[in-house]
Design a protein around this nucleic acid. Structure first.
Length: 213
DNA sequence: ATGCAGATCGTCT
DNA sequence: GACGATCTGCATC
């Protein structure tokens, strides 16, 4: 079941929390690649000085002014893409950044695209997951509430959620300390997971992998 | 285990 | 013209 557009309305921080446990699906000619969302961040538009849309409408963020459930994708540091989903109150240019996935389907495809065989290094970061799922600017503006190249289906709510400050936004004077990053507590696939724990808990099979959430 | 430099280019000032 | 909502590899301890 694909999550309906109404899922993305409301407080973007709630949407970010609710996205944990849901499943991001990417379909290409190579096949299907998917993963359970285990880490997100909320960006609250004009009331959040860490947000790209803080100063209002520019060409880059035009997708945030469309319908909720629209993909906002941007290039960072000239080499990696990051995926966001438009969310929040009607008319507000807010979104949720998808920061990490627990690989579910098409791990062979992801491993090839990423150039690594390590399970816990396939989708454990916003740039990594876009590379693993072949997400780039061509999907800018895609509707994730419709079956197509990129969509999100209903998964299972995680047991426990942790809230922390967002990553890489020290330049944000007002909101840098806000606890708007959400992760599935104890999950080994979040970004920056301790190497030690990842090594110890890294599952070896798809079934073990699915149980970890 | 931790730290730092380098890659690389679209977007905004 | 400067700077990232990042990641990797290499250096060092």
């Amino acid at each position: 079941m694909i999550l309906p557009r109404s899922f993305y309305f409301g407080d973007s921080r709630d949407v970010a929390r609710n996205l944990l446990g849901q499943i991001l699906v990417r379909e290409t000619e190579e096949g299907v690649a998917s993963g359970i969302i285990v880490e997100t961040e909320a960006y609250l538009g004009t009331r959040d000085d860490a947000a790209h849309s803080y100063k209002g409408k520019t060409e880059r963020v035009r997708a945030l002014y469309g319908e909720k459930g629209t993909a906002y994708i941007y290039l960072i540091y000239g080499m990696y893409y990051c995926l966001n989903i438009a969310s929040g109150p009607d008319g507000e240019p807010e979104c949720v950044l998808i920061r990490a996935l627990q690989p579910l389907e098409g791990m062979d495809i992801m491993a090839r695209r990423r150039g690594t065989a390590r399970f816990d290094n396939l989708c454990s970061g916003p740039g990594k997951l876009c590379q693993a799922l072949a997400i780039d600017k061509s999907l800018y503006g895609a509707d994730v509430t419709q079956k197509g190249p990129l969509y999100i289906v209903k998964g299972a709510a995680p047991e426990k959620i942790e809230a922390t400050p967002r990553v890489g936004i020290d330049y944000a004077f007002h909101t840098k300390d806000a606890l708007w990053r959400f992760i599935v507590a104890g999950n080994a696939f979040v970004s920056g997971a301790k190497k030690k724990r990842a090594l110890q808990n890294s599952p070896q099979t798809i079934d073990e992998n699915a149980k970890l959430l």
